[in-house]
Amino acid sequence: MYEQLKTNGSNFEIVYVSSDEDLNAFNNYHALMPWLAIPFSDLETKKALNRKFDIEGIPCLVILQPNSNKDDATLHEGVELVYRYGVRAFPFTKERLENLLEEEREKHERQTLTNLITNHDRDYLLGHPSPKQVPVASMVGKTVGLYFSAQWCVPCVKFIPRLISIYQKIKQMLVKNGDQEDFEIVFVSNDRDQESFDSYFNTMPWLALPFGDPTVKELAKHFDVHGIPCLIIIGPDGKTVTKQGRNLINLYQENAYPFTEAKVELLEKQMDEEAKSLPRSVYHPGHRHELNLVSEGNGGGPFICCDCDEQGCGWAYQCLECGYEVHPKCVTTADRASTGQ
């Protein structure tokens, strides 16, 4: 982006404010950058800038406008804006960002499955056995999960067996019920090379975008995907149902299908009813303190289960002494296993 703006003659510059531990690290890192830098030895200026802009983490890109006397002249979300919009974010003014947001809203309103996962050079997905090609047109009208993942990602590798199991159960459920609707998943790879992609995709029973396809980056930007694994659910009408597919599967398994707000609301009510019969406190194998049942309204909220390492929300068993939290289903499973029931 920087080089493109400079080539276009745009009035834009970057100044590197180092957090490197030593001069050698600073020199090596700054050598990769085409822009300016605060000298490594100028600690006072670096500290003053960190205080002035309340820097809490890096990377951080603070945008300063020429009209620095105005309230909107300082923008702290530079990294996110560059990631989402690239050179289109320039000149980072309030008006420009409002226009970009409006363009995004219009794009989401016009969204269809076809314009999401095809491009001018490709109207198919990869299937099994490779290199089978499945027309995207055959996917229209289905509920589709876009699964952002990679073989190098440990949470992805841990999640994939669960997702495969739930995927197969949903497919079986739809066949058993005689439903006309269908469910499919499309692997959107963040793998680092073709070999890793091929190896990982061969473990999956669903479809995939080709490795290195430009649509991969476009989808990540369109859905603002910052971490993996991530499962975006697209409805039969081609509109986004939820970006929380992974969490819903962890909470409700195959019952989460079709992942709509109405279905989630129903499941939450069922969970509230089931919670009435749960013990108010338990002792969980692997943790020495008593765990108390809490709801989202009194301390539950979003959490990472200390038993299965997956996200949860709503009801949880929580240690009031140290913050240890587990899904109610994980406590039940562990207790039964430990007692031989």
Results as ranks from 00 to 15, higher is better:
Y124I: 01
E21F: 11
Y283D: 14
M204V: 04
N250W: 06
W206V: 02
K47E: 08
Y317K: 04
C330V: 07
S281D: 11
L97G: 05
M271E: 15
E181H: 15
D307S: 15
F303V: 10
V62L: 03
F12C: 10
S19H: 04
D182V: 14
S19Q: 11
G127L: 07
M139E: 10
L61P: 02
L113C: 00
Q253F: 14
S277C: 01
I228L: 05
A208Q: 04
T93L: 07
N190A: 15
S196M: 15
K243Q: 14
F211I: 04
R192W: 14
P210E: 06
N298A: 03
E102R: 01
V17C: 00
L125M: 05
K107N: 15
E109C: 07
E218W: 15
N177A: 14
R88Q: 15
N190Y: 08
S68I: 05
L266H: 14
I14W: 06
N99Y: 05
N67K: 13
I170W: 08
I249V: 15
I170T: 07
N8H: 03
D335F: 09
Y257F: 15
D22N: 15
N119L: 12
P34E: 12
I58K: 10
E268P: 12
S277I: 02
S19N: 08
A256R: 02
P135T: 04
I185F: 06
L231M: 12
I63A: 07
F92Q: 02
M271Y: 09
K70S: 14
R246C: 01
S338N: 09
N202G: 08
Q341G: 02
S189Y: 13
F40S: 05
S68N: 06
Q311M: 03
Q65D: 04
L36F: 06
L291H: 01
A48E: 12
K176R: 15
H287K: 13
Y16W: 06
D42V: 06
F148L: 05
E104V: 00
Y124P: 12
D335M: 09
T242H: 08
S149M: 00
A316T: 11
V144I: 11
S19V: 04
Y257M: 09
A137G: 06
E98T: 00
F26N: 11
Y147M: 05
P285D: 11
F223K: 04
I233F: 14
N177C: 13
P161M: 07
A275G: 13
P66I: 09
A150G: 02
Q311W: 12
